[in-house]
Design a protein around this nucleic acid. Structure first.
Lengths: 344, 344
DNA sequence: ATATTTTCATTAAACGTTTAACCAAAAGGG
DNA sequence: CCCTTTTGGTTAAACGTTTAATGAAAATAT
């Protein structure tokens, strides 16, 4: 089955391919009403679909936007364990679709990849989430296409940015626990790297402690990975060995699920014996049992915002005003059933 | 910043662009050792990255594989609520990446879309999941690229296929409940459409009932959508109005989560008062509380298999042997904590 | 030494578009 | 009626590759 090209349409309509191209591109001033309809008929009749590839070659576009997400440790897979990413991707896809773009998923491997795919595929733009590597950013600058970063703090203002106030989030979470009468509060967290999201939350945790005259006890921070398993073992550990801890702040909902599990496995109850607050409010949070109290970041809005900012950049790329906007999505505690008010 | 093309490399190395292209494509027999290294040096020095777009034009490829997934009702978004899809995508991405492909996500809209994106983007192949529409399949045939269907029963053998034995799954689930002493078993399900996955599971449910001398009671099937909310309301309904029902089979884990929630909201306990079994074994299933007893389909393996089958098809596309393979991923009950053995 | 083959390189066409440049005919202006 | 503009159209170059065709020089065979 031969592929149908613009040439076929032109022949069928008895015009030049330029004419066809013009109507395809809405430059209808260049062609008469008559031929416009003739061309449209031919298109419809032949079932012609233009090649984005060919167009891309000359216009230097791809109608593709890259979504770069973290990979698993072994670099074999994208990090999809955490629904956080899926939800955001879903949001992103929803908006770019409106504009005729498709998204292409990719991870960043050590060294290689990003610049590669960006230039070899002629991406029209990219959204990078949850990654902070100077090297990556350098590549991005070279690639020189519109980019928006999600949840990145290492940004010398070269890129548009959407994120949340993680420090505030950590603060709010911890304060919420304190307000409910808790004094010995554990923190279950991933690796605390300078300038990382997790570090900010950790900082917020400390600030809340201090502002409320509580002592920061390093023994109460359980630092490993942002994962269910780490949560689970920490939960068990806390329940078993730290009877004074009455509440824990988990830096992500997935971690919180693990913590709760661990606590229960040690024969204690959430929230009766130990309260738990999470972070993110992934959709599973409200489905979980008990429904998880957490710091809600509007994941969907976040993705949407990023996508819109990107589109905007792409569209004004003529105007070159690569405004480095920064959008902060508001945070909010959603109080469900894993935090108990301590009366004493 | 000017884009670096093969031409630049050629000039820099003092050879023709053909020579460069040959070494790029591993046809090194066509060029001497000497120049090979010179060219490689130039490539490295100029930081040259070939344009997949341009190559695609002439080779009629894109190194892109389409992953088509269902959309939400309003057609605004891809269905990502159910982690089932994310997990599969993750698996798919993992394998196609090995071969240098990227995946591009798309939904199918009424009428349009699939054929469009397939031909306009020159997809090298596509994986279609969870969709059964004759129209779509017709389009696929026209598109004439390698395709593998996941979880589809309407297949006249034109396409490769990976799925599970859903009927058996439904059967196993139900039998498991029966073996644990349950006689009045509810079914919470999405719309039962002919030839759909859900129908098969329903059929398995009925068969298990019959084979064990149990009466099939239509009042016990709660049919609406494959969603948490439907599960939740059904769970509540069952707990409230159907005291004789001691176990329910939910056609998906997400539904099961809802059912459990609904039951608990009505003041009953799972599994003490009512047992629940799910289907899929998404990763959340083992994290849930109580950990969900479910029919495990190896989602990851499923995605991987589909991807491998697709790659295979793509690679032998010369040999034209578009073998319409069908791969069945085995099923297995994983017994966790939501099914209780009834002693009576 | 001649004929043949192999090796290494180049040229140019092709892939399917877009778009600047060009042009003829028609329309409008004086 | 001539000059200018507008309208509706075409031609051809360009985008960055791949690859068939071609050919000159070197190697091998006779």
């Amino acid at each position: 089955m031969k592929k149908i090209t613009i040439k076929d349409v032109a022949r069928n309509a008895g015009v030049s391919i330029a004419a066809v191209s013009y109507v395809l591109n809405g430059k209808e001033s260049k062609v008469s009403q008559d031929t416009i309809v003739r061309i449209h008929e031919s298109i419809r009749h032949l079932n012609y679909i233009p090649s984005i590839t060919a167009r891309g070659l000359v216009k230097n576009t791809s109608e593709l936007i890259g979504v770069i997400i973290p990979q698993t440790e072994d670099h074999k897979q994208l990090v999809f364990e955490n629904p956080f990413y899926s939800e955001m991707i879903s949001a992103i896809e929803g908006v770019v679709r409106e504009y005729g773009y498709h998204i292409i998923l990719a991870g960043v491997d050590k060294g290689k990849t990003y610049l590669d795919i960006s230039t070899s595929r002629n991406l029209d733009g990219a959204i990078i989430m949850g990654i902070y590597s100077e090297q990556l950013y350098d590549e991005c600058k070279q690639a020189n296409i519109p980019i928006v970063l999600i949840d990145s703090y290492v940004n010398d203002n070269s890129f548009a940015n959407v994120g949340i106030d993680d420090e505030l989030g950590g603060y709010l979470a911890t304060k919420h626990l304190i307000e409910n009468g808790h004094r010995n509060i554990g923190l279950v967290t991933g690796m605390i790297r300078k300038e990382g999201v997790v570090e900010k939350r950790f900082l917020g945790y400390k600030r809340a402690l201090q502002e409320n005259g509580l002592f920061y006890n390093p023994d109460y921070v359980f630092e490993n990975s942002v994962s269910y398993v780490h949560g689970r073992s920490s939960g068990a550990l806390i329940a078993d060995k730290f009877p004074e801890i009455t509440a824990v702040f988990a830096v992500a909902d997935m971690v919180a699920f693990g913590v709760i599990r661990g606590i229960k496995e040690s024969g204690k109850d959430v929230p009766h014996d130990i309260s738990v607050i999470g972070f993110d409010d992934i959709s599973m949070a409200h489905m979980f049992l008990p429904p998880l109290t957490t710091v809600k970041q509007q994941i969907f809005l976040k993705g949407e915002t990023a996508a819109r900012m990107l589109i905007e950049q792409i569209q004004e790329k003529n105007g070159v005003s690569v405004k480095s906007a920064r959008s902060l999505i508001p945070l909010e505690i959603v109080d469900r059933e894993t935090v108990r008010k301590l009366m004493n």
